[in-house]
Design a protein around this nucleic acid. Structure first.
Lengths: 233, 233
DNA sequence: TCAGTTATTTGCGCTAGCGCAATGAATATT
DNA sequence: AATATTCATTGCGCTAGCGCAAATAACTGA
């Protein structure tokens, strides 16, 4: 399978690329298909490649010595990840990238993009915008974790995820469906699956969401926003 | 007061700059002196300037609606901060920058550096390295906050601070002094000053540190490292 | 259809760490 | 030297949220 190079323009970093550059990238990239639960790379591996997710969904996570995990980010189609090696020579990935569903990604050698960047200012700009966006999100999430109560953090997490990977149900209606386990949400919100389960059960009682196995339907987004802003109680 | 442009090379982003570039930056920069507790900029202000701390020390923090604060980073001499506006047009600072001691910083228009970057690849590289470093640190701290107990987090915070702003006491000896209030540490570790006080008291009993008013002397760094790695108990 | 696997729920007990309040110590101000 | 201010300590009570365990529900594969 070859990918259509024009599609690469959907990657934010490549939005201003020339057609030739896109072809070049598509040529030099290697397609890697991966089963659900498998890994693109592990924390500590040498960051020789950067990835662009073509189909599927992946998560970036970090674990401590005792194996406890935190989700740092969910990666969707046409998003770049693992690009650290482009900037830092001999860097190791600071995170592990795991496929949440069967996924395909284009792997590009870090050194290759690094070389391209020397003569293409748009790449520098694009990468920096990606990085600053990431920094701002991490700062925000850090603050949330440090200062907000769980229920609020879970609401913020669910809303964030809904924006990133939610599927609209019906036309115009604000109902959004999420395919995530309690564990996934817990790792992203920095809590436990038990607490997530309890909070979702309470929200269901209030008619805010509908909760199923690895499934959440947001019935009343506004209500969740209120919780996330602490405007309730 | 004018600053010696050669000193600007101590800024990591400018380490490969030409002498002319440094002069240019020194000329275009505006020196801002600020009292302890005063602010370089507030979260939400338009990010028109980036800063280079010349003397003193500052902290970057973020607050939520109810005013609770988290320390995201401590800025030392010759470090750049508030550089977001260089990458994102019309951006607002996502953090507040406050002087911890009387401080001086060189303010440079974001647009000016942006323009310089068009023709100077070394600036792009330098800024990206700064950003990736920041991303990695934030990811790590996020994971710590989500998975580690307070004592361990406080140990990690104190060790990190010691590396950044610690003053060596005596030659060769591993004793390091830190000028920080309990509140400062609490905000950086994501806890309360009470808990920090209790933990420091316990460490003092164990002979690991010496704690005073806005002062901590690390007597046994190795012991702290052990706590930070969970190797004790 | 049935067994096996995986995800979720919920009762229960527990404790880490929060936060008030009162006191004490250090520093600054007059 | 006396007073005011700021910072730190510590006793105390409390509760949010953790985490085990057992039950249940949903899905998978033979």
């Amino acid at each position: 399978m070859k990918i259509d190079s024009e599609n690469l323009r959907r990657v934010s970093v490549f939005k201003d690329a020339t057609d030739e550059d896109l072809k070049l990238l598509a040529q030099r990239g290697i397609l890697r298909s991966i089963e659900e639960g498998e890994f693109f790379f592990f924390q500590g591996d040498p960051a020789k490649y950067l990835y662009i997710l073509i189909t599927g969904r992946a998560k970036l996570m970090q674990s401590n010595q005792s194996g406890q995990q935190v989700n740092l980010r969910t990666i969707n189609e046409w998003q770049m990840f693992g690009a650290l090696g482009v900037v830092r020579p001999n860097a190791a990935y600071p995170v592990t990238a795991q496929a949440l569903v069967p996924s395909t990604a284009l792997a590009i050698e870090s050194d290759f993009l690094k070389e391209m960047m020397q003569t293409r200012p748009y790449l520098n700009v694009g990468l920096m915008q990606l990085m600053t966006g990431y920094i701002m999100e991490m700062q925000e999430r850090y603050r949330e974790l440090a200062t907000e109560r769980v229920e609020r953090r879970i609401a913020l997490t669910v809303l964030r995820m809904a924006g990133q990977i939610g599927k609209r149900l019906g036309e115009g209606k604000p109902m959004v469906e999420l395919h995530l386990s309690r564990q996934d949400i817990a790792e992203a919100a920095g809590t436990t699956l038990f607490t997530v389960s309890r909070v979702l059960a309470e929200w269901e009682r209030q008619g805010l969401v509908e909760a199923g196995r690895e499934r959440i339907v947001i019935r009343n987004p506004h209500g969740l926003v209120q919780i996330s802003e602490g405007l309730d109680q």
